[in-house]
């Protein structure tokens, strides 16, 4: 898989750190002290705004990790410590949350995410072949990470992918190269196949 220096299990799950021992030269990871932890102001403000929305500040853990990932590119130890400092939680708590969810990355990742759905409906219509094509197309591009993903909730455009959050489909093998090209150009990706423009298939759904 291009870009990812981390081997993965089939469906994008991270290979866990089973074989990792604790580094006994490190201090225990307690809640970072605000006196000694630098937190970028925008991140701090964002997390504090998120915490204010909930009756219990801990609810903001996922939004806060999303913000940190946006800023740092991934949930790096540094990013986690910053979130921990603002939220008054231990970094371990946050890494436990982050590793539970597929969209939070605790390893460095390329800037662009291409999630190819390879669940049942998509794979019935050739998603596995498209995934191979996508991986091949992205092989040379360090900025694009391709992951086979579980059902993204768009089986109506199967086989489909989510490119930086934009749903596109139905995809054919040729589209893989186009996706890379569009990503490089920086504009919209596969505009003609974007889900947002798709109309309902239900004949009764036509507006008055």
């Amino acid at each position: 898989m291009s870009g990812y220096d981390v081997p993965r299990f089939g469906h994008g799950s991270r290979v866990p750190g089973w074989d990792q021992a604790a580094d006994l030269t490190k201090d225990p990871a307690v809640i970072p002290d605000s006196a000694t932890t630098l937190v970028p102001e925008t991140l701090r403000a964002g997390i504090e705004a998120a915490m204010a929305k909930y009756p219990e500040r801990r609810s903001a853990a996922i939004p806060a990790l999303h913000l940190a990932q946006e800023l740092h590119g991934w949930c790096s130890p540094e990013a986690i410590e910053q979130v921990a400092c603002v939220m008054r939680l231990t970094p371990a708590y946050l890494i436990s949350v982050a590793t539970f969810y597929d969209m939070l990355e605790t390893r460095p990742k390329p800037r662009n995410d291409v999630f190819v759905c390879t669940n049942i409906s998509c794979s019935l219509l050739g998603a596995d072949e498209f995934y191979e094509a996508m991986v091949a197309a992205a092989a040379e591009d360090p900025d694009v990470g391709v992951r086979s993903f579980e059902c993204l909730g768009a089986c109506d455009i199967a086989p489909m992918a989510s490119v930086n959050g934009e749903y596109v489909g139905p995809l054919e093998t040729e589209d893989a190269a186009q996706i890379i090209e569009d990503l490089r150009a920086g504009g919209p990706v596969l505009e003609a196949k974007q889900l947002r423009f798709r109309r309902s298939v239900d004949p009764g759904a036509v507006g008055p």
Binding site: K53, Y54, I62, P63
Partner: peptide
């Protein structure tokens, strides 16, 4: 009304997993 975005876990569709996730925990 607050919109809360998840982060990719099927089990959060299970109602109690969803609640834990909404509380900022593992789902």
């Amino acid at each position: 009304l607050v919109l809360h975005r998840g982060a990719g876990a099927y089990i959060c569709g299970e109602e109690t997993g969803l609640l834990d996730s909404l509380e900022g925990k593992r789902g």
